[in-house]
């Protein structure tokens, strides 16, 4: 490495700095591209809900939890994550179709991921977390709580049952429930 004078040292460092800045710019552009063109963004929702009144809200009352298909055919799965269980403990969703997951916490911070997919969000008391996804693999997937929420955290997990589109049969009220495993 050239080092006869301080000037030579700095010229060498400058060439490397240009290479660094160029690669960093390239990485940023790739991320920007994924966000703007492919809509790959983190699950930011900024929708609030009073954690002490979750069970009284029309949307997250027990009779409305789980998967529901609305008049427009949109599939929405609503889940309450609470110390130390998911309500309901199993949800059924169709494969190869857009599904919106909406999750709330009535008590402390939780978080969920679905194994083998990119579904991942924190569930913070006070906010409705929302994730849009398309499940591609069928079968029973694990959906554990991935954020420490207290002594029973390790036992807090649930099932996402992905069924082929043809076998996904919501009832007359639009709700679809897990049959017994």
């Amino acid at each position: 490495m050239a080092a006869r004078t301080e000037h030579e040292v700095l010229a060498t460092e400058l060439r490397w700095t240009i290479a660094v800045v160029a690669s960093v710019a390239l990485i940023s552009l790739a991320i920007l591209w994924a966000g703007l063109v492919h809509f790959i963004n983190p699950p930011s929702n900024l929708e609030t809900i009073d954690p002490t009144k979750v069970h009284l809200s029309p949307e997250f009352t027990e009779a409305n939890l789980g998967t529901r298909v609305d008049e427009g055919g949109r599939v929405t799965t609503r889940i309450v994550t609470a110390q130390f269980a998911f309500i309901p403990p199993c949800v059924v969703v169709p494969a190869d179709e857009p599904v919106t997951l909406r999750l709330v916490s009535p008590d402390v911070i939780h978080g969920v991921l679905v194994t083998g997919t990119n579904v991942n969000t924190m569930v913070v008391p006070g906010y409705v977390s929302q994730v849009h996804t398309v499940f591609q693999k069928t079968g029973d997937l694990l959906m554990p709580c991935h954020e420490y929420c207290g002594i029973g955290h390790s036992q807090m997990w649930s099932t996402v049952r992905v069924v082929p589109k043809a076998e996904f049969k919501p009832g007359p009220d639009g709700r679809a429930l897990c049959e017994k495993p």
Partner: peptide
């Protein structure tokens, strides 16, 4: 992965994070 912040500020801080690799 948190719900209490918008994608806009997440993106701003992501961009600054890339710079800390320099």
């Amino acid at each position: 992965m948190d719900p209490e912040h918008s994608t806009g500020f997440k993106f701003v801080q992501m961009t600054l994070t890339v710079l800390v690799t320099v």
